[in-house]
């Protein structure tokens, strides 16, 4: 089954530019982890901060463009993996190993159409 692992952390931890030693550390860990996952990893990316985010909202027939993420929260989506594994237990095992430098959460979402 294919799952998206959505990584939620407080992005303030990394600074608005998402640059510097903490980002270097976490990116290094993600690179190593992606290597470990091998063919189980079918996609994924790290995301720039919500300061760089633009949202297109649809309400009725109107589409409007806004600055910032669709919802303000204490923790923000900071990156994701797409994985292909046997079942939820294996997805949970992978999610537990996703590198994270502070408190946060990994949301496991099965992909539609399978």
């Amino acid at each position: 089954m294919k799952y998206a692992l959505l990584i939620y952390e407080n992005e303030a931890f990394y600074g608005t530019e998402k640059a510097g030693p903490k980002i270097e550390e976490i990116v290094g860990k993600h690179m190593a982890f992606a290597g470990e996952l091998g063919p189980k990893r079918i996609g994924g990316a790290g995301l720039k901060s919500t300061a760089a985010t633009t949202t297109v909202r649809t309400a009725g027939n109107r589409k409007t463009v806004h600055d910032g993420p669709f919802a303000e929260a204490r923790e923000q989506l900071g990156g994701f993996y797409l994985i292909d594994v046997a079942n939820l237990d294996e997805a949970i095992e992978v999610a537990k190993k996703v590198p994270i430098l502070q408190d946060g959460a990994i949301e496991i979402r099965p992909l539609l159409g399978q």
């Binding site: 089954m1 799952y3 046997a86 079942n87 939820l88 237990d89 294996e90 997805a91 496991i108 099965p110």
Partner: peptide, 14 residues
């Protein structure tokens, strides 16, 4: 069904 809960017994560490 949707989340893909496995039909195997969990591994002992779980």
């Amino acid at each position: 069904a949707d989340a893909g809960v496995p039909f195997e017994l969990p591994s002992p560490e779980a």
